[in-house]
Structures are given as C-alpha cells and as structure tokens.
C-alpha cells in the first residue's frame, strides 16, 4: 500500500477503533451488552473509573458476561476504601447487568485503577 493511501486511511481506522474500543469490549456481543449497560448506568457511579466486558460460555458451557469494574483510586491504595467503593458500585451495576443480560450468568470483578493490567498482561 502506498504511503499516501495509508495516511489517508489512518484517521478512518482510528475512528473505528475509537468507536469499538477493543480494549474495553472484547467481542461484538460484549460491545452490544456493554454499551447498553453503560447507558443504563448513567450517571456513572462515583469512583467507577471504567468498565470492561467479555462474553462467551463459562466453564460449564453456560452463556456468560464478564464485567471488570475499575475502581478509581487517586490516593494511595487502601483495602477498606477499595472494598467500600466497590460495594457501592456493585449495588448499582449488578441489577442493571442482570436486567440487560437475563439469559446469561453475570460475573463481576472489581479492580483498582492502581493495578495497571496492561503492564501485567491482564486481558484488556
């Protein structure tokens, strides 16, 4: 591909990546479910930094949706504060996720933004 054509295509490709956010939505079904959940979750709960979604069969073959909720930790990480903030987010997020994905099992995971998953190789 000529350099000129590549440069012309690049902004369009970046726009697609920005829309699909493959670092947060790991497959098309996760994108559809995740976007719906995020819409229903507005206004975003306090201390929720961002969500990541993956769908597929779980270990028993049942349909499932995994959600990673990243809890905002701007200060130095603290166990008790993390658990409190995660609990508040869970109370709002879990019923919405179950409503949006009633056919599947919803697995919620809570992580701190002080954990940098990309560095550790955690699935984005």
């Amino acid at each position: 591909m000529a350099e000129e054509a590549r440069q012309e295509a690049l902004p369009h490709f970046q726009a697609i990546v920005n829309i699909l956010e493959p670092d947060r939505f790991m497959n098309p079904e996760a994108f559809a479910l995740g976007k719906t959940i995020e819409q229903k979750l507005l206004p975003k709960p306090q201390h929720l930094d961002h969500l990541r979604f993956m769908s597929g069969p779980d270990s028993t073959g049942d349909p499932a949706l995994w959600i990673w909720a990243f809890v905002d930790e701007t200060d130095e990480y603290d166990d008790a504060r993390f658990l409190e903030r995660a609990g508040v987010i869970e109370d709002v997020l879990e019923p919405i996720a179950r409503e949006v994905a009633p056919e599947g099992r919803v697995y919620l995971h809570f992580r701190s933004t002080s954990d940098v998953p990309e560095v550790q190789g955690v699935p984005a």
């Binding site: 166990d79 993390f82 658990l83 697995y107 992580r111 002080s114 954990d115 190789g121």
Partner: peptide, 23 residues
C-alpha cells in the same frame, strides 16, 4: 466463586489482582 475458582485454577491467561481477590 465457582467460576472465579475455575478461572483462578485453569485460566492462567487471566491474571488476577489483589483487590479483586479481596472483594
């Protein structure tokens, strides 16, 4: 916990974090 245990024991491609385990 069933699924978390399956992930923890068999899916080494999914690293787990300390806050996640605490929760």
């Amino acid at each position: 916990l069933y699924q978390a245990r399956m992930d923890a024991d068999y899916d080494t491609g999914k690293p787990v974090t300390r806050p996640e385990v605490l929760k």
